Amino acid sequence: MAHQEVALPLALPSTEKHYMTLSREGPLFILHLHNKDNRFTTEVCKAIIHALQVVEDTFLAQKEPTEMALITVGDGKFFSNGLDVAHAREYIPFMDSYLTMLKKLLTFTIPTVAALNGHAFAGGCMLALAHDYRVMRTERGFMCMNEIDIKAPLHPGMNALLRYKTTPKTLRALVLQGYRFNSDEALAADLVDEICPEKELMATAKKLALKWAPKAKAGIVYRQLKEELSTDTIRLLSVPYNRLESSRL
């Protein structure tokens, strides 16, 4: 079946509910999340998965090895404020959509960069960590897992992602202390790869994405290598939420 070209920029999930925009600048795809504080609902997660599929289909349709990378950025003072807890409590299958989104991003076919324009809390922190690289603004914003303070457990796959992406000391601070890492602390803890002023955020993210975009020329091997690096995390992210003893968030 021939690849169907999708017109960009693309409003997602629809023009009526324009929560995010997927655009392209040469070899770079940019997913701009701009729905208030970018909390995750089933609809939002499925829209991100759709955006990722559009990018992946475009990449796989190339006849020659191609440089390509994806940047995800938020809006205003939030990269993402995490899960819409009310929605997650009312609609338990939501968690499966959220976990599928994390897994697809973690194993994505091309290099990915999260541009942290502001706070990345809880589920938003997880979204950032699912990317290959992270750039964080210096003037304001924290990376934080606040489940300890809101008395919410973490799915095994989310814990696995944190273990995969952090050191034991940083993991303890994130999960058991709910510590809020500012940009300097996040850089020192290897939670992010670069920090910069807000006005330089996208330029820095694009420079980093362009640096690693040539690795996409490995084709499906890039994804295969990522999958091998994160085998245990993928397995635990694939545990259906209904199989857990408690569905309480």
Rank of each mutant, 00 (worst) to 15 (best):
K207V: 13
L225D: 05
Y241T: 06
T41K: 13
A122C: 10
I110G: 07
M1V: 13
D190Q: 12
I220N: 04
T204E: 07
E139I: 08
G141Y: 01
D57Y: 05
F29A: 01
T66Q: 15
R89F: 07
F108I: 07
E227I: 00
Y19W: 02
K199F: 06
A218T: 03
V113N: 04
V55P: 10
T204K: 13
M1Y: 10
F121K: 06
D75E: 11
C144L: 06
E139R: 11
K63E: 15
G74L: 10
H131A: 03
T58D: 09
A69K: 05
D149I: 13
K211P: 08
N242P: 04
S80I: 08
K77N: 05
K199T: 09
R163W: 07
R243H: 02
R24V: 02
K46M: 04
L10N: 00
A88E: 12
A11E: 08
H3N: 10
V239H: 04
G124T: 12
V135F: 11
L33W: 04
G178M: 10
R39M: 11
E200N: 14
T66P: 15
H50V: 04
A128Q: 03
S183M: 06
L28C: 07
L31R: 03
S183E: 05
F181A: 11
K77W: 01
V239D: 06
P214Q: 13
T42N: 10
F78N: 15
L162S: 12
E194D: 09
A115S: 14
M158Q: 04
E139H: 10
A216P: 01
L229W: 04
T107Y: 10
A188P: 07
V73A: 09
A203N: 13
L174H: 11
L8E: 00
T231V: 02
Y164H: 10
F78D: 14
E147T: 07
V54T: 15
M101C: 14
M202Y: 08
